[in-house]
Computed example of a mutant assay.
Amino acid sequence: MSKSSAERQAEYRARRDTAAQGNGERRLNTWMSTAAHLALKRIAGRYGVTQRGMLERLVLAEDEKIVAALDIDTPEWDGYFRIGTVRR
């Protein structure tokens, strides 16, 4: 018996954790303002990349700026890299 669409989709999503040379990928499902969405489309179009690619570039660039400003072996460094911590 063949698999249902839902079963195939579930298997595909399960494989994404080990995609990209074993580094994996994470699913992001969110709502954003129309203004932010339109800006993302414009910026991605300007650089000729997908919206996903542009969002990844922007996030990684900001992360690099933050990390560059932190000193290793400090509470600030440890706090920034504490996964799952909500910082406000």
Rank of each mutant, 00 (worst) to 15 (best):
Met54Trp: 03
Ala68Glu: 05
Ala39Thr: 11
Ser33Tyr: 03
Arg16Tyr: 07
Gly45Leu: 00
Ala36Arg: 10
Leu38Phe: 10
Asp78Pro: 03
Trp31His: 14
Met1Tyr: 10
Met1Pro: 11
Gly53Pro: 03
Glu25Asp: 13
Asp73Cys: 01
Met1Lys: 12
Glu62Trp: 12
Arg15Cys: 07
Arg46Trp: 06
Ile83Gly: 07
Asp17Ile: 14
Glu62Ser: 10
Gln21Ser: 15
Arg26His: 07
Val86Asn: 12
Ile72Tyr: 09
Thr50Trp: 00
Glu56Lys: 01
Ala39Trp: 07
Thr34Arg: 15
Gly48Lys: 02
Val59Gln: 04
Glu7Lys: 07
Arg52Met: 12
Met1Asp: 12
Gly53Asp: 01
Asp78Lys: 14
Ala36Lys: 08
Lys41Asp: 10
Asp63Cys: 11
Ala10Gly: 08
Asp63Met: 14
Met54Tyr: 01
Ser5Gln: 15
Trp77Leu: 01
Leu40Phe: 04
Arg42Ile: 02
Glu64Trp: 06
Gly53Thr: 02
Arg82Asp: 10
Asp73Val: 02
Gln51Ile: 03
Ile72Val: 12
Ser2Ile: 14
Ser33Arg: 12
Gly48Phe: 01
Ala69Met: 08
Asp71Pro: 11
Val59Asn: 08
Ala39Gly: 09
Ala36Ser: 12
Arg27Asn: 13
Gly79Cys: 01
Met1Leu: 13
Gly22Trp: 02
Arg57Trp: 03
Lys65Tyr: 03
Arg16Gly: 08
Thr85Val: 15
Arg27Ser: 11
Ile83Phe: 09
Asn23His: 14
Val67Ile: 09
Val86Ile: 13
Ser33Lys: 06
Val67Ala: 09
Met1Thr: 12
Leu40Tyr: 00
Leu28Glu: 03
Gln21Phe: 13
Pro75His: 11
Arg27Tyr: 09
Val67Met: 09
Lys65Ile: 01
Glu76Ser: 05
Ser33Trp: 07
Thr34Tyr: 14
His37Gly: 09
Tyr12Gly: 09
Leu28His: 05
Arg27Asp: 11
Asp17Met: 14
Arg52Ile: 08
Ile83Lys: 14
